[in-house]
Design a protein around this nucleic acid. Sequence first.
DNA 1: CCGGATGTTCACCT
DNA 2: GAGGTGAACATCCG
Length: 267
Amino acid sequence: MPEIIEVEYYRRAAEATVGRRIVGVDAPDDWFLKGGVSGADLATALVGGTVVAVWRHGKLLGLVVDAGDGDGSGRVDLGLRFGMTGRLVVDGDAPIDELLYTTTRDDPAHHRFGLRFDGGASLEIVDPRRLGGVELPADRSRLGPDAASLSAGELAGALEGSTAALKARLLDQSRVAGLGNLLCDEILWRVGLAPGREAGGLSDHETAALAAGVMTTIAELAARGGSHTGDLQESRRPGALCPRDGEPMARDRIGGRTTYWCPVHQR
DNA sequence: CCGGATGTTCACCT
DNA sequence: GAGGTGAACATCCG
């Protein structure tokens, strides 16, 4: 399910593991391990270590694990990605998602990765489609500025000089980290910008409005309960009318993703 | 049965 | 190099 909002929920849930000592790593699926690490590598690096911090950058969740050798040199960042269908389960509780995936949510075959902690607690990723993954170390090098705290200046830098479609650029995680398909459509609809506009062609005023829209939309939908709680959500289907002005919504393919937008008020 | 889905990466074009 | 497209991953849903 995750876009930036859901991964932030996951980060909060993962906070419960801070201070815990790792006693086991479950990595039943080599496909899920990215960057050439093996399950044995992960066990060597993580078992015996303690989670000392949790962070999120875009859709990437990081666990800082201290090997406990006293000087901090054994500190590593474990990176967790969730793809479209990955869910984080901490101590047997999924913080969200029961509403959308009501079936097979406990299928053991979908268990792709787990950490076991001293005292029986656990953190695991359940991901039916295996679109997520685990990496060590977490690689933030290809991520742009985080969308949840995006400044107008950062956004201007992300869009500058690009002839690509605005939405395609916003979906590019190396330019802005965290926005997914639903959130992008919602933001552009709220701000009144057409998704196919040339990314580098926005005025300063439009860029500032878009940056503000990115942050306020994320904050508002996060408070409501997720990326799927947008005002546009029910109109993301063929034949729907724009909730703002009642005009027919357009459906296009932009940035490789199905895009719903209102040709009347999004210009 | 078919198409599409909150994601990412890669090969292959233009 | 930039940008676009389609495939792949595997499952569920309409």
